[in-house]
Amino acid sequence: MPLDQEESGEKEMSFLEHLEELRWHVVRALVAVIVFTIAAFIMAPWVFENIIFAPARVDFPTFKWICKLGNLIGSDALCVQEIPFKVQSRNMTGQFTMHIMSSFILGLVIAFPYVVWEFWRFIKPGLQVNERKYSRGAVGSISFLFFSGVAFGYYIIAPWMIYFLANYSISDMIVNEFDITSYVSTVVMLVLGSGLLFQLPVVIYFLTKIGIVTPEFLRKYRKHSFVIILVVAAIVTPPDLLSQMLITIPLYLLFEISVIISASVAKRKAREEAEELLKEQNISPS
């Protein structure tokens, strides 16, 4: 039995016991998601009116904040007066499918901290004592970054994307009438995608911990990373400069934060390795 497990009072488990343990963590996480999914499914009229379709209305908080900013500088040009489009359901199962999909995504978003906590409970016993020490607050950090990304996608990216596409027209003969499947899928992709993209610092942290990524590597390919971020922004946003910059700037800031985190992790690893080497040589570290 490893020393760290002895110190923590945990017994060594077989491979099948690990699988059984993982199964129950997954089951509990799924139960939490299902419970919130059912709640969202029951509250469908309120959810669609106040959450899903809210970014498509001129009274959405983002548009109101921008309008107030315009009024402060003496301009009404920033006030959104109309978002000209209608939502239709052209497939027989369109509304029902989107009802289930939106309920599940909302359930997943709400249950996200608990899901992360369950998986963290499975991973934590396998960590060494010093790794547990430096990983305190992991669930809170992951959840904070996820909800920050979700809020950014919902309040910044989604409303401006909807406004741009609703007003985009190549001919007066064409009327924008979006299918509900297209509308909901696009909004979900932006919001959930932003939440996942904001996990970049966490990903870099663990990649640095296992030695796949180094701060030198990140600094060396900083320009390449910026190009990749631009490509990602171009894929997940409408083809206008404002929307692309809205997601490029925070993603690049997250990358720079990731470089700092990677450097901190690398320095800590080097110090621990030096201390371990000194212990092996029976020399007390200074």
Rank of each mutant, 00 (worst) to 15 (best):
residue 129 V to M: 06
residue 80 V to S: 00
residue 184 V to E: 04
residue 134 Y to Q: 04
residue 181 T to D: 07
residue 56 A to L: 12
residue 122 F to N: 04
residue 75 S to P: 03
residue 158 A to L: 14
residue 148 S to R: 02
residue 110 I to G: 08
residue 85 F to P: 05
residue 184 V to G: 01
residue 88 Q to S: 14
residue 81 Q to H: 05
residue 103 S to M: 01
residue 129 V to E: 10
residue 109 V to Q: 03
residue 73 I to C: 07
residue 130 N to T: 13
residue 119 F to E: 08
residue 84 P to F: 11
residue 87 V to E: 08
residue 134 Y to T: 05
residue 104 F to R: 01
residue 134 Y to H: 00
residue 141 S to Y: 15
residue 98 M to L: 01
residue 56 A to V: 08
residue 97 T to K: 10
residue 159 P to I: 13
residue 121 R to L: 10
residue 135 S to P: 01
residue 135 S to L: 14
residue 158 A to P: 00
residue 125 P to H: 14
residue 182 S to D: 15
residue 59 D to L: 00
residue 187 V to T: 00
residue 175 V to D: 10
residue 125 P to S: 07
residue 64 K to I: 14
residue 126 G to A: 14
residue 91 N to C: 06
residue 162 I to S: 06
residue 74 G to H: 06
residue 159 P to N: 04
residue 78 L to M: 06
residue 169 S to C: 07
residue 107 G to I: 10
residue 56 A to S: 15
residue 137 G to I: 05
residue 135 S to D: 12
residue 77 A to Q: 13
residue 149 G to P: 05
residue 61 P to M: 03
residue 87 V to P: 08
residue 169 S to D: 12
residue 121 R to A: 14
residue 142 I to A: 15
residue 56 A to M: 11
residue 67 C to Q: 08
residue 88 Q to D: 15
residue 57 R to L: 11
residue 63 F to D: 10
residue 56 A to T: 00
residue 177 E to N: 09
residue 178 F to Y: 15
residue 78 L to C: 06
residue 81 Q to G: 13
residue 111 A to K: 04
residue 145 L to W: 13
residue 67 C to A: 15
residue 149 G to N: 13
residue 139 V to Q: 09
residue 183 Y to N: 09
residue 175 V to P: 03
residue 126 G to T: 03
residue 159 P to H: 09
residue 119 F to M: 14
residue 134 Y to M: 03
residue 72 L to V: 07
residue 74 G to K: 00
residue 135 S to W: 08
residue 102 S to L: 12
residue 73 I to S: 10
residue 186 T to N: 10
residue 63 F to T: 01
residue 74 G to N: 08
residue 110 I to F: 15
residue 70 G to W: 11
residue 139 V to T: 02
residue 110 I to W: 12
residue 181 T to N: 09
residue 163 Y to R: 08
residue 68 K to F: 07
residue 150 V to P: 01
residue 111 A to N: 07
residue 106 L to Y: 04
residue 81 Q to W: 01
residue 146 F to T: 00
residue 148 S to D: 02
residue 105 I to V: 08
residue 155 Y to S: 05
residue 178 F to A: 05
residue 154 Y to F: 14
residue 80 V to G: 03
residue 103 S to V: 10
residue 160 W to S: 10
residue 93 T to Y: 12
residue 135 S to K: 00
residue 185 S to M: 12
residue 137 G to E: 09
residue 62 T to E: 06
residue 90 R to Q: 11
residue 164 F to H: 09
residue 174 I to R: 03
residue 120 W to G: 02
residue 103 S to N: 02
residue 67 C to D: 15
residue 79 C to I: 06
residue 133 K to I: 11
residue 116 V to N: 04
residue 132 R to K: 14
residue 123 I to K: 04
residue 185 S to K: 10
residue 150 V to I: 15
residue 105 I to P: 01
residue 166 A to Q: 13
residue 109 V to A: 10
residue 120 W to D: 06
residue 159 P to W: 15
